[in-house]
């Protein structure tokens, strides 16, 4: 399932909702991305912009791709947009499988992919002003390894 939303999400509830539908889930791979304040507490806010419809389409595609590559019972991607603050949750990737390897690997695959291929852009606001976050070489390499 894919959710692109402004609102925060409750990880426990989301996991519970999916787990209750299938009793054959043996393991859950989980990644929660959060807004970091920075080492010098410099970040005031982070605004996530996205390309509606394309975002949902791309997330749906990659979620389906994960289900082809790994033996998953279910998977969930929640990605927030709008203005967020240090400590806020940005993204949740949860993969549900019978055995742990499928859940852990597919979870890593999905978050690596999201970093560079989902149409989101981050605007960071700090004491220095507003800066659009640039693509990181390490994120590109991580996405390409799959």
């Amino acid at each position: 399932m894919i959710k692109v939303q402004k609102d925060d999400f409750n990880v426990n509830q989301e996991i519970k909702d999916i787990s209750s539908l299938n009793k054959n889930i043996g393991g859950i791979g989980l990644f929660i991305g959060k807004v970091r304040e920075g080492n010098n507490s410099e970040l005031k806010s982070m605004t996530l912009e996205h390309y509606p419809i394309m975002t949902e389409k791309k997330l749906e595609n990659i979620n389906n791709e994960a289900k082809v590559r790994w033996n998953l019972v279910d998977s969930l991607i929640i990605h927030r947009y709008g203005k967020l603050y240090p400590g806020d949750q940005i993204v949740l990737v949860a993969t549900f499988s019978e055995h742990r390897a499928d859940a852990l690997e597919s979870c890593e695959f999905l978050i690596d992919w999201l970093k560079t291929k989902a149409p989101f852009w981050k605007l960071e606001e700090s004491n220095k002003g507003k800066i659009w976050v640039e693509e990181k070489k390490s994120d590109l390499e991580a996405a390409n390894k799959w």
Binding site: H50, Y51, I111, T116, A118, F120, W132, D139
Partner: peptide
């Protein structure tokens, strides 16, 4: 058509 810089999701 959409124009944008490299994407930075996640």
């Amino acid at each position: 058509i959409a124009f944008f810089p490299p994407m930075t999701g996640g």
